[in-house]
Design a protein around this nucleic acid. Structure first.
Length: 598
RNA sequence: GGGGGUGUAGCUCAAUUGGUUAGAGCGCUGCCCUGUCACGGCAGAGGUUACGGGUUCGAGCCCCGCCACUCCCGCCA
């Protein structure tokens, strides 16, 4: 190795030493007589000085002709900077390297965008950044994200190892299981018309590993889902996948709380308090209108069903008479909401099937609202006291079936918080992390259109033991042993205690989900068979590793923590994939492509 | 599949709401400059306004189509 130090290493103590540095030309300041080159590598930067009075003319001349991001090797003597010229902004700012030798390892052409100025580079179009990802990743901010991701992965492996977990790799060439997310298919050359599928998660393998007696399994598992993308969703992503035998829910809570404490300590040097709060699905919906509540701010939903049961306002009374509820939330200080903002919120309500959105603006000491004339004094009094209504507030209502009413206001609550943040009326400490477990999810949900039950989570989730008798009598009331871990309104992961008795599993498949026995056999036969030969009680969880890293890096887009992410349409702008293949390749796979427009 | 936003110089943005030759900063090229660190100064080059149509005396701006990026809904057991 020719370099003697990295670019963030030299200090006044190194003065007098002859050193060799290698790296990229970060910036060049040519003062005519003297030339400063900042050399950058992964670790940081160091100022090198080229002084023509003290240097071979050819070397000096070569240095003046370097472009940004050329790769060079500089040899020189370390010395303290002259008094008054120190740079307090960088760790090596007390010293500089007086160059004696220069080798150009690779001349860089003019760059498509600059990587040296963080303020400029930050604003560069993401399309361009993705096309030249190798340049984008040179930015200190991006290398910091990659480094943090690596640290978190290492800390996770160490923690899991300390707790007796084995890291086991599972196949990425798996069997198609058309439940759930759409899969990527891989044609099988050896038998025409057959396909592998890339796994949406290693769910079935990890349960089989429990049957195999592994007892404690984990994996940083790549997962693949062929669904539309979002800022927090990529077609391939990574899960911290975990499964344990002979446990109950509490064991998972303790394990994950310990893991997240370790991760936060490693990544941010931050102690997070535990145990984490727990909240039931029902309470989460009632108070926040969502199953992954952001509890860093208030504006909770308040129920007014009893107050409006006999109201003269027929919209409310009618909804209640139909078995629905009336709920409201007070967006404190948002009476100034524009017509457009009210309209956006109304659209949210309509997207949930509501006819409109009732609201009250409290301005100039009066309630401005088309509906307030229908309210009795007692109703107004109830609103004022339960919502703490004051001048400048905006009160929003939803009157609908319970779940719908909650979800409408849940959506509006988040929207109002965003607006208030933009107006500077709501601020949230960026170093605040509200962790909570959401528990007691309903095991089953009902699909009105298909007229059947489906698993809220997945069909291997165990019912709460005392609810098992209700499975056939009143499926709606059965709670699943499912849990989600939520931080700051982001679903970080979820899991469950699994069904380990084949008869309960068969009941769920065939009687509740109404999957025909032949189909159950085709899709899950090997699993049901495995469970007949001694399956321990077990359960597990999967954490979204990309989302975890994004939260730790303070970004909302997981693209910022993935080295080579896909665009919103699933393409890679750097390699231009996906791309067509040759007729010969298709023929070998027994595939024929029909054009999209025919 | 649907809705919103964006697209103007290599990059980031402007263009008085349809009006003369489309501007600025950075970058780039040349010259000057011996203590800068976002170095500074002078000069210069650089544009099919994503693309294809249309309306108009006249389009970066209006209309239709299309492409790309992005955010959201659907979707993500």
């Amino acid at each position: 190795m020719k370099r003697t130090h990295h670019c963030s290493e030299l200090r006044p103590a190194h003065a007098g030493q002859t050193v060799t540095l290698e790296g990229w030309v970060h910036s060049r300041r040519d003062l005519g007589g003297v030339l400063f080159l900042d050399l950058r590598d992964r670790e940081g930067r160091t100022q090198t000085v080229f002084d023509p009075s003290d240097l071979n003319a050819a070397v000096f001349d070569r240095a003046t002709r370097l472009h940004s991001e050329s790769v060079i090797r500089v040899t020189g003597r370390v010395r303290p900077r002259p008094a008054g010229t120190e740079n307090a902004k960088i760790p090596t700012g007390q010293v500089e390297v007086m160059a004696t030798g220069l080798e150009v390892l690779n001349d860089a052409e003019i760059l498509p965008f600059s990587v040296d100025d963080p303020e400029v580079a930050n604003k560069v179009n993401e399309e361009l950044r993705l096309k030249h990802r190798y340049l984008d990743l040179r930015r200190p901010e991006m290398i910091r994200n990659l480094r943090l991701r690596s640290k978190v992965a290492m800390a996770t492996r160490a923690y899991m190892d300390e707790h007796g977990f084995l890291e086991v790799e599972t196949p990425t060439l798996f069997k198609s299981t058309p439940e759930g997310a759409r899969e990527f298919l891989v044609p099988n050359r050896r038998e025409p018309g057959t396909f592998y599928a890339l796994p949406q998660s290693p769910q079935q393998f990890k349960q089989i590993l429990m049957v195999a007696g592994v007892e404690r399994y984990f994996q940083l598992a790549r997962c693949y889902r062929d669904e539309d993308l979002r800022a927090d969703r990529q077609p391939e992503f990574t899960q911290v996948d975990i499964e344990m035998s002979f446990i109950e829910r509490e064991d998972i809570y303790a394990l994950i709380e310990g893991l997240l404490k370790r991760v936060w300590k490693t990544a941010l040097g931050m102690e997070i308090p535990g145990p984490f709060r727990r909240i039931s699905f029902e309470e989460a919906l009632n108070r926040y209108g969502i199953d992954k509540p952001d509890t860093r701010f208030g504006m909770e939903l308040v129920d007014f069903t009893e107050e409006f049961r006999a109201s003269a306002f027929k919209v409310f009374a009618g909804a209640i008479a139909n078995g629905g509820v009336v709920k409201a939330l007070n967006a404190k200080g948002l009476a100034c909401a524009t017509q457009g903002q009210i309209e956006t919120m109304t659209e949210y309500a309509k997207s949930f099937g509501a006819k409109g959105l009732a609201y009250i603006k409290v301005e100039g000491g009066e309630w401005k609202s088309p509906i307030v004339k229908f309210f009795s004094p007692a109703e107004k009094q109830a609103l004022t006291s339960k919502l703490g209504i004051e001048e400048g507030d905006l009160v929003l209502f939803a009157a609908d079936q319970w779940l719908n009413a909650c979800e409408i206001l849940g959506k509006i609550r988040l929207y109002c918080a965003d607006v208030l943040k933009q107006q500077g009326k709501l601020s949230i400490d960026p170093a605040r992390f509200d962790f909570l477990w959401v528990v007691d999810f309903p095991l089953l949900s009902y699909d009105k259109e298909l007229n059947r039950w489906y698993s809220s989570h997945h069909p291997f989730t165990a019912p709460v033991a005392e609810d098992i008798p209700l499975l056939k009598q009143d499926p709606k009331k059965v709670r699943g042993q499912h849990y989600d871990i939520v931080v700051n309104g982001v679903e970080l992961g979820g899991g469950s205690i699994r069904i380990h008795q084949p008869d309960v599993q068969r009941t769920v498949f065939e009687e509740i989900l109404q999957i025909p026995p032949e189909e159950t056999q085709l899709r899950f036969g090997y699993m049901l068979e495995a469970f007949r030969y001694g399956a321990p009680p077990h359960g597990g969880i999967a954490l979204g590793f990309d989302r975890l890293c994004a939260i730790l890096c303070g970004t909302t887009s997981i693209r910022d923590v993935i080295a080579f992410p896909k665009t919103a349409k699933g393409t890679c702008l750097m390699t231009e994939s996906p791309s067509p293949v040759t007729p010969r390749q298709l023929k070998e796979l027994y595939l024929e492509v029909k054009t999209a427009k025919s």
